[in-house]
Simulated assay, not measured.
Amino acid sequence: MPTKRHTPTVRLRRLAAELRRLRASADLTREDVTERTGINAATLYRIETARVRPQQRTLASLLDIYEVAQPQRDEIIALSQGADEQVWLRPYHAELRELYTAYISFEAEAQAVRNYESLFIPGLLQTEDYARAVIRGGLPSANARQVEQRVQARMERKTVLAKDAPLQLWAIIDESALRRMSGGPTVMRDQMNHLLSAMAEPYLTLQVIPFGAGSHPGMPGSFALISFPDADDPEIVYIDSMAGDMFLESGADVNRYGLIFDTLRAVALSPDDSASLIAELLKDIQREEEAQ
């Protein structure tokens, strides 16, 4: 039975950042706080890095030592009480990668995502058959149940596009992702049709970087920039690579990847020209199917 995993939320990240700020404003080190409150140093570290939500008594001790007055005190307590609420999470996610479930949680709370993909169609735009094909190909040792769990998780992520205020998705795809016959011609035909249909939706801006563009700064790999409705929640960068998943939160990293995305946006075809390229590739696939 998988152990229960803590998945960070935007609110928990905000609480952790606020407690770090308050400690710094009080000119206290973690060691100072431990000495004066008796809070375990490891526990304090986990609280300040959004690993755990502080217990009510622990939070009260921190707010006392930081001399936090009303109404800020009530605001922080309210933030803590809602810090573990998962906007989007399913029981079987315990078997998914920990940072991937964190990404799912952040994506569900996000206002916008800027996603660059070099080898795959973006997850939010994948058909079920395409998702199954790329998951099987990428995880050759996974059994059928594990594959289907990941397919289901990917399909359920799409609910963020069906909300009253849908996630705003700006996706840039390298042409190689469109030309790779993941799952075969029939799967790719349906995937291309799905992309063309999705491009008519107001929540989506889709661009393709053609082979003719030559080398570009996205060639090292894919990434996503996640932004949130509340200005107090800073953007984060998510990177999924062979070496493992990674979140980058520093302002310098977010600015660097924002600049890379802007460069890719300039290198890529316009949305209209991208749709024309996808339509041409779709015709090629249909001709190939007819010839068989």
Rank of each mutant, 00 (worst) to 15 (best):
V87F: 12
Q56C: 10
N40K: 00
D230H: 04
S105N: 13
P229A: 04
Q70T: 00
A162Y: 11
D272R: 06
Y203F: 15
M155S: 07
G214V: 10
R189N: 14
N255S: 10
K4I: 15
L19T: 05
L277R: 03
V10F: 04
D232V: 04
T37S: 02
Y66V: 01
A142C: 06
R90L: 15
I39C: 02
R265H: 15
E235N: 03
E75A: 09
A275C: 05
L169P: 14
L89T: 13
P271A: 05
A266K: 13
A102W: 11
I236Y: 04
A24S: 04
E156C: 07
D32K: 00
G244C: 00
L22H: 04
E156I: 03
A110D: 07
V113C: 11
V151M: 11
M181H: 07
T205F: 14
I278L: 06
D164V: 09
E117H: 02
L15F: 07
L178F: 11
A231Y: 05
E48Q: 05
S141F: 01
T9P: 02
V68C: 03
A83N: 12
A108F: 08
L161R: 07
L99Y: 03
D190L: 11
L195P: 12
R179G: 13
E117D: 09
L264F: 15
N40Q: 00
T37I: 00
A69N: 07
L125D: 12
A198K: 10
R154T: 09
I121L: 11
R30Y: 02
D32S: 00
V237T: 01
L161A: 13
L15V: 04
G251L: 01
V113E: 09
E175V: 05
A144Y: 09
L119A: 02
V208C: 11
E290W: 12
E249Q: 04
Q126R: 14
R73Y: 08
I47V: 09
S276P: 02
R265D: 15
E290C: 06
L124S: 12
S182L: 13
A41M: 00
G184N: 09
F261E: 06
G38A: 00
K158D: 10
D190Q: 14
A24K: 04
P220S: 03
E75M: 01
S222G: 04
I65E: 06
S80N: 15
A162M: 11
R46L: 01
F106W: 10
T9I: 03
Q286G: 03
H6T: 14
G218S: 02
R5S: 11
G244V: 00
V10N: 10
N115V: 11
G214W: 15
A231C: 01
P140Y: 08
M1V: 13
S222E: 06
Y130I: 06
H93W: 15
Y257S: 00
F120R: 06
A78S: 13
V10W: 07
A252E: 03
F120W: 08
V160Y: 07
L282V: 03
L248A: 00
D64W: 10
A243S: 02
M192R: 07
I47G: 02
M246Q: 06
R51L: 08
S250C: 02
L169E: 15
T7Y: 15
K4S: 15
L99T: 05
A26K: 01
A266C: 10
S118H: 03
L269P: 09
I39L: 04
N143R: 08
H194D: 05
W88R: 12
Y257F: 08
D74A: 12
